[in-house]
Design a protein around this nucleic acid. Structure first.
Lengths: 192, 192
DNA sequence: TAGAAATATGGTCAAATGACCACTTTTCCC
DNA sequence: GGGAAAAGTGGTCATTTGACCATATTTCTA
């Protein structure tokens, strides 16, 4: 289980075996059942989370109770509410499991120490943050400018591997369109 | 002119006079007329830019030529395409002046040196990047979840000082709605 | 394995939105 | 100062979208 994480580190960095071992051993394993929450809004996000297998979603709720998804985090990726984690303030978002998932958690104190002690982990961390920021910027632009159909096509292009694992209403919540609109788009694409 | 930037640094950091002087003297002044471009898509973003006065917009174009605005940068803020600047790759976005503007530019080599030499500048830089990321995340959520009217109200709440300086079609391009819809919202709010 | 819950699709209707056009007022710049 | 461009508003109509409802199918789980 932890081996998967070690493999991830080995393929994404050139960290020494000792460092990898040190990072991995600071983690707490956790599993999440389908729909179980990892982080609830109004709580502080206390952990940096690596997904070993399964699939998480980060989402927010609006006044009427409906949910909109900011991000999906499949195996070999990370999940956290960065603002809440960094500033130790209550989160406005939630993180929950879409599928039964296996996770590794680090609390902030431990992870910060690893970051200061292991420069290459810091480099990886920065790289991940940057990439995530570039892609949210791109996503914001798509959200502003694309039609519903373009948004769906963009999604299928960008995350082909997630398509089959997600119920349509979650894809709709990610695209910011109604389930009805999404079904219509799919229907129209069939007859072409 | 450069004094304004020095004042900015003094109120946002506790940098020494020497450091402030060093940072300021590495900058190139530049002015931009209304609608003049600072960065054009397909070009590499070579400068970190501080806005002394005036107002910039960062925007992208879609196939049909219409524009959508990612960000406004008024005086005492910064503008750049982070992804293009960091990776020295062609930008997909443009930056242009909404009003006649006075800027300070640093090229990457110079600014990187300042960052390594002056830890507190690095701290400020990190803080600015983080804040910008938190707010784009929040903005993405609004773009996904809010109605046109809610988006406009959110905008007036968040940027009351920009309202009077911006023509409506630029606000519409920022909200990702048509000018017509924006006019309708304003019309409806009058009769209430 | 049976019942319950989740999922996918479709129909209908009303509301929201955008495209296109016209007109007036304001602002800009030569 | 004056002509041109930009900005703001409004009308109309077609399209898109969402809300609500129903139903068939699949999946989950007790």
């Amino acid at each position: 289980m932890i081996t998967r994480f070690e493999t991830y580190l080995r393929t994404h960095t050139s960290l020494s075996d000792e460092d990898i071992e040190r990072i991995a051993s600071a983690a707490m394993p956790r599993s999440l059942r389908r729909n179980e929450l990892l982080l609830q809004q109004d709580q502080v996000c206390r952990y940096k989370t690596f997904i070993i297998n399964g699939l998480l979603r980060t989402f927010g709720r609006v006044a009427d109770g409906s949910e909109y998804i900011l991000q999906f985090s499949p195996e070999n990726s990370w999940a956290l509410d960065a603002e809440s984690y960094d500033r130790e303030t209550p989160s406005v978002f939630n993180i929950a499991a879409v599928e039964q998932s296996e996770l590794l958690l680090w609390n902030k104190a431990d992870f910060d120490r690893l970051l200061t002690d292991i420069p290459e982990l810091q480099a990886l961390s920065r790289q991940l943050i940057s990439r995530s920021n570039y892609s949210s910027r791109q996503r914001l632009f798509t959200a502003l400018s694309a039609t519903s159909e373009e948004k769906y096509e963009d999604f299928t292009r960008t995350f082909p591997h997630l398509l089959a694992r997600l119920p349509l209403h979650l894809i709709a919540a990610y695209l910011g369109i109604s389930l009805k609109t999404l079904t219509r788009i799919r229907h129209a694409q069939l007859h072409r």
